[in-house]
Amino acid sequence: MSDNPWAAVTQSQIAAADAAVSGAERDAISGHIYPCWNLDAGAMQGTNYRVRLALDVTREGRVTRATVHPEDEARMAREPRYRSFVETARRAAFNPRCSTVPVPRAPYEHWRTLFLTFDPRDVR
C-alpha cells in the first residue's frame, strides 16, 4: 500500500475538521459503525490493541475504501492475533448494515476521508 492518507496530515487539518464537524456528528458516525464491530471480549484479554483505519467515503457517506495505518499494517504482518483484530474493524467498516455513515453538514472536503481509531477500551 503506497497510499498513506496520514502522510500529509497536519495539526491545522485536524483543527479544521474539529471546527467544521460537531461532536454530535462524530458520535453519530461512531454510533453507526460500532454495532457492526463484532468483537469477542475474550479475544481482547491481555491486549491493548487498537487500529487506525482511513475510510474513504462518497458524498452519500458510503465507505469505498479502508486503508490501515502503515504502522498498524506492519504489525499485522508480525502478529496473527493483531491481524485478526484489524480484520474485525475492517469488516465493521464494510458491513452493508453500517457502511453508509450519517454525513456531517460540513463541506465534503472535510470528511471525504474519515480517520477512525478502533480502540475497544469500553469492551475490555
Binding site: A17, R26, S30, N38, T88, H110, W111
Partner: peptide, 15 residues
C-alpha cells in the same frame, strides 16, 4: 491529501 482530518474513536463494540 485531505483538507481536513476528521478523527473519530470507536471504543464500543458489539459482542
Amino acid at each position: 491529501p485531505a483538507l481536513a482530518q476528521l478523527q473519530i474513536d470507536i471504543t464500543r463494540a458489539n459482542p
